[in-house]
């Protein structure tokens, strides 16, 4: 999957599900938007739908270290490549 497609989709999720408009790539999402662990779990569910496969428990745990949008892009890109 193309990086641009991932970025476009993640930004749409942030807009539709979290009411966060165009967040900067390297800003701390918790500090800037109060994006907490509850939101992170919901984002993972959205990512599973987007990618079309279920994440393993380890993959989900890895996501808990993420704090910026850029890291989310990297995370989703790696997941996508892992199943190619």
């Amino acid at each position: 999957m193309e990086r641009k497609e991932i970025e476009k989709h993640i930004l749409r999720i942030f807009h539709d599900e979290f009411e966060i408009e165009n967040p900067e790539n390297d800003i701390d999402l918790r500090e800037a938007y109060g994006f907490d662990s509850i939101d992170a779990i919901e984002l993972l569910a959205e990512i599973e739908v987007f990618l079309g496969f279920e994440l393993t428990l380890d993959e989900k745990k890895q996501a808990m270290e993420i704090s910026t949008l850029g890291q989310i892009y990297d995370y989703v890109e790696n997941l996508s490549n892992s199943r190619d």
């Binding site: 662990s37 509850i38 779990i41 919901e42 569910a45 279920e54």
Partner: peptide, 10 residues
């Protein structure tokens, strides 16, 4: 099961 939301309890 996996669709039970993270915030459903709250």
């Amino acid at each position: 099961f996996s669709k039970i939301g993270a915030v459903d309890y709250l």
